[in-house]
Design a binder for these strands. Structure first.
Lengths: 336, 336
DNA sequence: GATTCGACGTTATACGTAAAACCTAGGGGC
DNA sequence: GCCCCTAGGTTTTACGTATAACGTCGAATC
């Protein structure tokens, strides 16, 4: 195809078709109705095909002042959750002629590298998870159209937000465990400063406060299976009456709790009920399968992208949280 | 910062500093030794800072004809393996002033969407996993500098390859199980056409053929925990002497095998030994912990990026496969 | 005192595209 | 016969940057 030398430009196509460069631009940009004859348009398209012409995106972006590319800033890709968010966002983007570039907040790449230098590409807008804390300040400075995922609607300084109804999910989990007779809880919380985790803590405390006789311990852990093992083990082995139910901020923490329970000789769900949040593949791989709050990651990404498109077009984004639901499996049982 | 109107250009900076646009370019491009006085350079830098100037990447890319951006094409982001590859590649890229854009091969986005349209950005080169099959033909057509990950060194048409020494890993696993007395094997293979899986099958067959009295069944499964459950269950329950050891193409398949074993009432490792490949976080979360071939994903990404940089500079990429090692844990035991 | 030279800049140009402004011929209306 | 309109193009310009080519002025060389 490419003759080894340099890529063909629209001028090369014009020459091959015997027209001006402007005509090529009109035809290929589909703006030729009434400006170029049917026959000429066909000649141009044929020449472009023969030469293997691909428009130079740098030139187009420069000319148009926009790139039809948005950045998706995520905390990490160590679980399939944000992969799902990306899939949803990319699908909607593709339907509107946009591309999505992923920016996983760097761990070990360097101290808070600038996402915009990294993407090396001008951007029309940004979708950012509130969990990608170190990238957020840089994003703010750019004054780009911005949609925040799982972020405080009041504290987001006017940026559009798209949220999962995580409060309702935690409420469902608490309700479920209460109805099974549990009264002594452990909240295994993610040690990450993000609204989405603050909500979990607030909602859980609020609900359990309403029920007389309940107690709740809180332990904090980094979001990883290994980290959760030590945190859960310490919290479960602490003096005082042992909790009978553990509410984990996500499925990885729940997996760590399983391992901690094994080490302590506790059986799930007989001695200890456990719930998670996310519904990763991990959740059904464990023994017993994990009762967890299912999050629709792809829908989350879709809604995020739709909101950004709305912002870009000056429309108001769709409002309302995305519903979630507790999936009952084998890790929860009647308090013994 | 940006006054709500439009972003400042190098010309705005020039005006603010009382110099020409060319001088701004020289100073900010660090090419001013002997061409601009120290004092003027400082004035320019200050003006740029005050205005919040950011160079327009589209313009720079157009002018230079390169983008210092490479594309990393991966099959999926459902495990942390390719997240590690990205981290390694991005680290090396950053050291050389490059950015890395991730392109997860689409599942459900559309029929083989063009990665280059998607990235919406001109690219200097591509690093592609051989597992991202549907994207590969599009990549070939672009005649871009290309590095293949885990691809057949002979069949890659001259593209540079960087490979894990997966053959050695499988050999270590087979050796380990043979030394424990196992003779009846199940190979749970990934149902994905990729060199990296062909190598596993070939190497395993070759090693077991050398030992008289061994038998090996093969089952194929899509790469997911759920998919592996059915495949492993069927293969283990098939008529004939049951295998005593299962060699899985990756850890997700191993996790599925655990679940299948539970359903069949088989205990690991007493009734069944299991090995995997990858060493995901999953591997140590399972009970018992999984004996598996540890792959250094970050090093893999680093080597891939280094090879691409070499290609871009016309040097020969470093050769030699990346070593791997079997990590012994609790899922393998003496054949009963 | 003419020449050279380095320090310090400026002017001009090109990258490839999109689109506004312009041109030309032929036909229809009056 | 003149005017205007439309179809079917072309010429020109601008996007913002990097850099090659070109000045200028004072000091140093011979």
């Amino acid at each position: 195809m490419a003759r080894g030398s340099t890529r063909p430009t629209s001028r090369d196509v014009a020459q091959a078709a015997g027209v001006s460069q402007a005509a090529v631009s009109l035809v290929l940009g589909d703006k030729w109705r009434g400006r170029v004859s049917q026959a000429t348009a066909e000649r141009v398209r044929e020449a472009a095909r023969d030469l293997g012409y691909r428009p130079n995106l740098a030139a187009r972006n420069l000319r148009l002042g926009r790139t039809r590319t948005v950045l998706l800033v995520v905390p990490a890709l160590t679980t399939e959750f944000f992969a799902g968010v990306y899939t949803g966002a990319a699908r909607i983007a593709a339907e509107h002629g946009f591309g999505v570039v992923l920016y996983p907040s760097p761990e070990g790449i360097g101290p808070a590298r600038d996402p915009f230098a990294s993407a090396q590409s001008a951007l029309d807008g940004v979708i950012a998870s509130s969990m990608a804390a170190d990238a957020l300040t840089a994003i703010r400075g750019e004054a780009l159209p911005l949609v925040m995922l799982d972020s405080d609607p009041d504290g987001s300084l006017g940026a559009a937000t798209v949220n999962l109804d995580i409060a309702d999910g935690i409420r469902q989990a608490a309700e479920h465990l209460l109805s099974l007779g549990h009264r002594r809880f452990l909240h295994l919380a993610a040690d990450v400063p993000s609204w989405t985790f603050e909500v979990r803590a607030r909602e859980l405390a609020a609900r359990l406060d309403e029920v007389p006789g309940t107690t709740v311990r809180t332990a904090r852990s980094p979001i990883s299976i290994e980290g959760a093992v030590t945190a859960a083990q310490a919290a479960l082995a602490a003096p005082g009456d042992r909790p009978t139910a553990v509410i984990c901020d996500d499925d990885q923490l729940a997996a760590g709790t399983y391992k901690a329970a094994r080490r302590l000789g506790l059986r799930i769900p007989d001695d200890l009920s456990v719930t998670g949040v996310d519904d990763l593949a991990l959740a059904t791989a464990m023994d017993p399968e994990l009762t967890t709050v299912h999050l629709n990651a792809e829908l989350f990404g879709e809604r995020g992208m739709r909101a950004l498109l709305a912002v870009l077009e000056g429309r108001a984004p769709e409002s309302g949280d995305i519903p979630v639901r507790l999936v009952l499996r084998g890790s929860t049982a009647r308090a013994g």
